[in-house]
């Protein structure tokens, strides 16, 4: 399934076919993995792999949807540099990776509980105090969320 977005092709794939698709793309010439990131939608997490072809400079994005608590296969055999990117995804979103050499926290302290970038993890803001009896406010709520 492909959709074009700002000129970049987006391929959606299921978890089982992920490694085959990435291996096929890599042998076709998309040899550089530019970015590995994720977006959290509370019950599920969308993981994105952004690939680039160094000879034609075309980019393609591969999207995989994984439910909370499920694990993805690792791509460190194809790209050794994906090691830290997967550790960051584990730390921030709680996405596990099967076959990763050393999956532990990278940005938060080792004994931190919780995965900060998930949407239901609170920001833990301190309300700002005001004088003259005005109620304390959190900075992110001063301009409310408007759809």
């Amino acid at each position: 399934m492909t959709t074009s977005l700002g000129g970049m092709k987006v391929l959606e794939v299921k978890k089982e076919g992920l490694i085959d698709l990435l291996t096929a793309l890599k042998s076709e010439g998309y040899a550089v993995l530019v970015d590995l990131t994720a977006t959290d939608y509370i019950t599920e997490t969308k993981v994105h792999y952004l690939l680039r072809n160094p000879t034609t400079n075309e980019r393609v994005r591969v999207v995989v949807v994984v439910m909370r608590g499920e694990k993805l296969p690792t791509v460190t055999d194809l790209w050794p540099g994906a090691d830290w990117y997967e550790r960051e995804l584990y730390d921030m979103f709680g996405v596990g990776f099967l076959g990763h050499p050393d999956l532990k926290r990278i940005l938060m302290p080792d004994n931190w509980e919780g995965h900060p970038m998930r949407r239901d993890y609170p920001l833990m803001e301190e309300p700002v105090q005001f004088k003259h009896g005005v109620e304390p406010k959190c900075p992110s709520e001063i301009i409310p969320h408007v759809k």
Partner: peptide
């Protein structure tokens, strides 16, 4: 004071 970052980190 924590500056412009009012969060967990």
């Amino acid at each position: 004071t924590g500056g412009i970052y009012n969060n967990y980190a």
